[in-house]
């Protein structure tokens, strides 16, 4: 039973949380990678776009809750998602009209866009805090657990518990659906193909009669959807705090770059690589190793390689290693 216990412990503390966290990062990184591939700049405002969209979802959720509307065992936030996406889309399209289009017309270099996005980030950041405040907000409702510790123990008779929160399950299911729809859109529809064509070869896309402004609009719409969904799932799973979302920028960018900027598959892979690395390295592995290894080799310490306070260092490390060894990322995106 020992290896089984080790596996269950590992699943409980590492695999399940990392899969959920990885899905959230993957959705965030998909947004970053789409902007990079099509608009050709690194959008530093992405974390705060997520925060803004999530804020819209939370406000709508509260409205629905006070009106007595629920979604059964599922969180009400899922019902509020379309509203949040619409608000985020309006914000992004407005920003594009006011800020980015100006630089696009001037054919500004990418670094100008990056710095402009930094400014946009501060504006979003301040606006979000101004509206909803800087504190933690919890808005998850509905059933709390898909698999509870007691339920799992009763069902299997194992000593070690396995807990799967319903928000974790929802995260994974929603992420799978969103990714499937996104890939279907990019690979099967005329508009999706024109976006890929534009990302691949701008001049030839123009020659083929693809309207760049339309491509840009569609990109922002998709990014609004991805950012709001990613932010909402993260907020449901953990909690909503504007500053945390700003900090999420690092693992999200790390995920996008590790996978290869501009490559959607890479963004997903990168999200899971970063999530698993972060969770594994900051989790005390003493118990798992204790089950796996013979008594004499069992570790004395916690075998926690890094304190959770330093979890962002993991993203940095992976980022640097990838940039040194394979600058185009796992899936050969555009070189940074």
């Amino acid at each position: 039973m020992e290896p089984l216990h080790a596996l269950v412990t590992l699943a409980n503390f590492v695999i399940v949380p990392a899969v959920a966290y990885g899905s959230q990062l993957a959705l965030g990184a998909l947004g970053v990678t789409l902007i990079y591939g099509i608009l050709r700049f690194s959008n530093f405002a992405h974390g705060d776009t997520m925060a803004f969209g999530t804020m819209a979802v939370i406000l709508t959720t509260w409205g629905l809750q006070s009106a007595g509307i629920g979604f059964g065992p599922l969180p009400t936030a899922l019902l509020a998602l379309p509203v949040g996406i619409a608000v985020a889309a309006a914000l992004l399209l407005g920003t594009d009209r006011v800020v980015y289009r100006f630089y696009r017309d001037k054919k500004a270099v990418p670094v100008t866009f990056v710095i402009a996005s930094l400014g946009v980030m501060f504006v979003y950041n301040g606006f979000t805090r101004f509206v909803i405040g800087v504190d933690d907000q919890r808005f998850a409702d509905g059933a709390r657990f898909l698999v509870s510790a007691r339920g799992f123990r009763d069902a299997t008779g194992l000593d070690e518990p396995l807990v799967i929160k319903s928000t974790q399950a929802i995260t994974v299911v929603v992420a799978v659906v969103v990714v499937a729809v996104l890939f279907w859109f990019l690979n099967r529809t005329r508009t999706g193909k024109s976006m890929r064509a534009y990302s691949d070869n701008e001049d030839l896309a123009l020659l083929s009669g693809i309207n760049p402004e339309r491509v840009v609009t569609y990109t922002w719409l998709i990014v609004a959807g991805l950012a709001t969904i990613a932010g909402t799932l993260y907020g449901l799973d953990k909690s909503f705090k504007p500053f945390t979302y700003f900090q999420l920028l690092l693992p999200i960018f790390a995920a996008a770059i590790v996978g290869g900027l501009g490559s959607p598959i890479g963004a997903i892979a990168g999200g899971f690589v970063i999530a698993f690395a972060e969770v594994t390295i900051t989790y005390p592995l003493k118990k798992v190793l204790g089950y796996f290894l013979p008594e004499s080799l069992a570790p004395d310490g916690l075998v926690q390689l890094l304190s959770t306070d330093y979890k962002f260092a993991v993203s940095f490390m992976i980022l640097i290693i990838v940039l040194l060894i394979r600058p185009t990322g796992l899936f050969r995106g555009k070189s940074v």
Binding site: A197, A205, S208
Partner: peptide
């Protein structure tokens, strides 16, 4: 750079007929 390198041959042709 007269083709879309990351698109399939068929998609290249489809994009040619975009208008």
């Amino acid at each position: 750079s007269n083709i879309f390198t990351s698109l399939t041959v068929e998609e290249n042709l489809e994009m040619g007929a975009f208008i």
